[in-house]
Design a protein around this nucleic acid. Structure first.
Length: 587
RNA sequence: GCGGCCGUAGUCUAGUUUGGUUUAGGACAUCAGCCUGCCACGCUGACGACCCGGGUUCAAAUCCCGGCGGCCGCACCA
């Protein structure tokens, strides 16, 4: 512990390296900086693009998930419907004496024995009264509390010049998908299951976004909403993933105070009921593989289940995918929530738009249905001018209820009107139902893009002979290949620039560097994670061969210049290893 | 938001205690030139800083106040 100040941890090292080499830094430095905002430089921006490209390759290309790009600002109604206006806030009280701030619901739960769900429902006034009634004092200094206040985590703004048009910055990209469900369902050719992904910025006005990288006020989120029929929750990919192991930390164990990791296969997790939805289990397996592709070994990953009161308002079950990082231990990179039909139902309620889908049965089902037929010949004389109204209301009434009431009481009360059995005919009709309408369920894997960038950096970082190396997986490295003249004279730079240009033309991210000695250039390239270095020497001018150097092993092979494009292409698609790029070479 | 500590070039740092002796010194990095036949060689030169705003004083990197930012602790993280 005492050595901590002497040996900076990886987080500090990564941040320094990131800043020095232009991966990212804190925004608005010239005005003193603003906490929670970060700017990516050219290397970081490209690293992040490559990481997001991998997400797209997996979800969009391979699984056929639709990608959309929707606005960041939404009218307030959207987040009223989603529940964020009500839930995405904290009720805080401040101690008047020591000025410490506390979450009101925590205090009430602890000192007034008010249940979790109850505590959350209380209004400002009720909280104030409860605090007074139970004489809750500051647990730190015994002081009294001031007025409870809400802190809304969403950024609020106005849309257009009229201040009554309130809007919010989205705290998640998911709502952009739910509100467009009708269009998207159509785009998916009206078939379930289907998924939609959105990768974009989200805003959260965090109370105190410290620790540079991990809690930002503006960040990139990749929300994937996967819609399925709750009556057909089976996942057609299950057979491909059922034997993948998932390291789970279950809520039931957490409640006992244990963070024991239970290693189960996807199949076991489902049969044992640890994970409620097949699709969710499969997405968790995919998320695990994805992180392995970013350089995080499986042993450094876990999925921790959220306790009932830790869960978001929309979820019935939620796991966080966590990665072991040096500074904080377990660090969330993705969340996997079973959101059921919560969001679509809420948007149905608030917008009045039907979000249900129709699914045709294989065979139409014949169903008996009780119907109430008003007999106008009887109703007319009794109700006169109201007769038409009564008839309409009768047809809207629940037939079962009407029938039951008549059986029990001998009449049915429709508002003020007493409906006698002779006014109506209760018939049993056979109806053919061709299908059913229902609101789809949703499982949501949601990745923090920036956090993926961080863990990729931390797991890529290593030190060899006192030199820092970022051993990025070759397909996320921001620069693919460095091109160097062995010395910058005698025609070598000219030839090197030709090769550099060829590689650029072939679509590679190639960088030319002739500054300083060759060793210095290799060291610089290693530090920003360039997987391959191509060096042009005097032999190149004679036989058109170059050396290719591997970032991680520092080994070299000799290859023909004209073969480089196809060799490199294979290498970056993992179709060839470094040794396949040429003949061993000793410089 | 609160409390403690802190803020000198891209980075690390000298100077701050005791205000003036400093055109604020050094190292690394960067750039230019020389050198360089495969892993941060060397030489010459260049660029580059007292977080911001007030105050005290003849004089402020140095003392005081406020703000911003950082680290740690508390709290917070649907």
């Amino acid at each position: 512990m005492t050595d901590e100040t002497k040996t900076p941890d990886k987080f500090t090292i990564i941040n320094e390296l990131a800043r020095r080499r232009g991966f990212f830094w804190q925004s608005y430095e010239i005005y003193g900086g603003a906490s929670g905002f970060v700017t990516y430089g050219s290397l970081g921006a490209r690293l992040k693009q490559n990481i997001e490209k991998k997400l797209r390759e997996l979800f969009v290309n391979k699984l056929g998930i639709l990608e959309i790009d929707s606005p960041i600002i939404a009218p307030s109604k959207v987040f009223e419907a989603s529940g964020h206006v009500d839930h995405f806030k904290e009720l805080m009280v401040e101690c008047l004496k020591c000025k410490r701030q506390f979450r009101a619901d925590n205090l009430l739960r602890e000192f007034a024995k008010i249940g979790e769900s109850e505590a959350e429902k209380l209004s400002l006034k009720e909280v104030k009264e409860a605090i007074e009634k139970h004489e809750i004092r500051c647990p730190e200094c015994g002081g009294t509390f001031g007025e409870p206040k809400y802190f809304l985590i969403m950024f609020k703004t106005t849309i257009g010049p009229y201040s009554d048009a309130v809007g919010y910055g989205r705290p998640e990209a998911a709502q952009g998908i739910f509100v467009e469900f009708r269009h998207l369902y159509e785009m998916a050719r009206e078939k379930l299951p289907f998924g939609v992904i959105q990768i974009g910025h989200a805003l959260r006005n965090e109370i105190s976004p410290r620790q540079g990288l991990i809690r930002w006020r503006e960040f990139t989120i990749a929300d994937l909403e996967f819609f399925f029929d709750p009556e057909e929750p089976n996942c057609y990919l299950l057979k491909d993933f059922e034997n993948e192991t998932l390291p789970l930390v279950l809520a039931e164990n957490k409640l006992r105070g244990s963070e024991e990791i239970v290693k189960v296969t996807v199949k076991e997790a489902l049969t044992k009921g640890y994970i409620k939805a097949e699709w969710q289990a499969v997405f968790m397996a995919l998320a695990k593989k994805l992180l392995v592709d970013f350089g995080v070994p499986a042993e450094k990953q876990r999925f921790i289940e959220k306790l009932p009161w830790e869960k978001a308002h929309y979820a019935v079950q939620s796991f966080d995918q966590e990665i072991c990082v040096e500074r904080w231990g377990w660090f969330e990179v993705s969340g996997h929530a079973y959101r059921t039909d919560y969001d679509l139902k809420r948007h149905m309620q608030f917008s009045g738009v039907d979000m249900r889908v129709f699914k045709e049965y294989e065979k139409p089902v014949e169903r008996k249905r009780t119907v109430v037929k008003p007999l106008m010949a009887k109703l007319g004389p009794v109700f006169k001018e109201d007769a038409a109204n009564v008839a309409e209301m009768l047809s809207e009434a629940d037939p079962e209820e009407v029938e039951a009431s008549i059986k029990k009481n001998g009449y049915y009360m429709l508002g003020k009107c007493k409906v006698l059995p002779e006014y109506i005919e209760i018939a049993c009709q056979k109806v053919k139902e061709r299908g059913r309408k229902f609101v789809p369920h949703v499982v949501e894997p949601s990745f923090g893009s920036d956090r993926l960038v961080y863990v990729t950096l931390e797991y890529a970082y290593r030190v060899k002979d006192g030199r820092a190396i970022l051993s990025f997986p070759r397909d996320v490295a921001p620069i693919q290949v460095g091109v160097y003249p062995l010395v910058s004279k005698n025609g070598l730079p000219e030839r090197t620039l030709q090769i550099h240009k060829t590689l650029l033309d072939e679509g590679f991210m190639a960088e030319y560097d002739e500054a300083g000695s060759i060793g210095r250039r290799y060291a610089r390239a290693d530090e920003i994670g360039v997987p391959l270095g191509i060096t042009v020497d005097y032999d190149t001018l004679k036989d058109n061969t170059v050396t290719v150097r591997d970032r991680d092993s520092w080994k070299q092979v000799r290859s023909r210049v004209e073969e480089l494009p196809q060799l490199l292409r294979k290498y970056f698609r993992w179709k060839a290893d470094f040794e396949d790029l040429g003949k061993p070479f000793k410089g």
